[in-house]
């Protein structure tokens, strides 16, 4: 419960650091905030060019199909990656001032969530641009976002605190995310995976989330609500475990960094 009291008391710090991270990311670049659109667009362009050449896909609209998955995937990948750096990046403050340390991973995930919400414009643009329409299922967007956010907070607690003690983890996480990219149905449809590998789809939490976003924007039907709810519960459990671990490890942060 103390975490909520802390977060409320330090809400201004949370707000300013989220703002700083959203705005500061492109502060010194010529095109500024435009990059938050340009980056995923260019990435999408590369994938949309390459993947159809190597994977046979019978999706009617591969670019939209890819877009609905790639944007939420980027949210996941950058949030996990950046939460592994956040303590080291802020070691300067951590050693000098007291403030609730959980602010740092939470503000990383939150700022990436804000970025994701902004880049959802791209998804909507592609959906409409390719002649599809936005249906009532799009109303489930906040729900799936909440599931992903909860999951990420849990992961960020664990990752950000462990990295302080084991710096190697940073590199492992980079590789692991790359591996996960291919183990998640982003560039392909989960149905094309052979039967004996289907367990990967069941145990990969991102598969559920990606399918959810794809269901509401691309296929435009009801997502698997039961799977999403289960994942939400797992996410909550992960937050509790993660926070417990974080509170234990944070006592040594100033000495370890």
């Amino acid at each position: 419960m103390r975490i909520f009291k802390n977060l409320y008391q330090y809400r201004e710090l949370l707000k300013t650091s989220v703002k700083k991270e959203v705005r500061g990311k492109y502060k010194n670049s010529f095109l500024g905030v435009i990059w938050s659109f340009l980056n995923p667009l260019l990435q999408l362009g590369v994938y949309a060019l390459v993947f159809p050449l190597i994977i046979k896909s019978n999706e009617t609209n591969y670019t939209v199909f890819l877009c609905c998955a790639l944007i939420p995937w980027n949210f996941f990948a950058t949030a996990v990656n950046r939460s592994s750096f956040t303590m080291v990046e802020n070691s300067n403050i951590l050693k000098k001032v007291y403030f609730p340390r959980e602010i740092l991973p939470i503000s990383v995930v939150t700022s990436e969530a804000v970025n994701f919400i902004i880049s959802t414009v791209i998804i909507i643009g592609f959906v409409l641009g390719f002649g599809l329409s936005i249906t009532k299922y799009a109303l489930l967007y906040p729900l799936i976002l909440l599931v992903q956010y909860t999951l990420l907070i849990g992961i960020a607690f664990i990752v950000s605190s462990l990295v302080v003690y084991i710096r190697d983890l940073q590199h492992f996480i980079g590789v692991f995310i790359q591996l996960m990219f291919y183990a998640t149905p982003i560039a392909y449809n989960a149905k094309v995976i052979p039967e004996n590998y289907q367990w990967i789809m069941r145990f990969n939490p991102m598969a559920t989330i990606i399918s959810g976003f794809r269901d509401i924007f691309y296929y435009q039907h009801m997502p698997d609500l039961q799977a999403l709810f289960t994942l939400f519960c797992i996410g909550l459990a992960l937050c509790c475990v993660g926070y417990a671990l974080f509170s234990k490890l944070q006592k040594g942060f100033a000495e370890q960094l």
């Binding site: 008391q9 330090y10 809400r11 201004e12 710090l13 300013t16 403030f99």
Partner: peptide
């Protein structure tokens, strides 16, 4: 000032 004071736990 805003950033530093918020580290000390002040609201806007």
């Amino acid at each position: 000032i805003y950033f530093n004071a918020s580290i000390f736990g002040l609201s806007r």
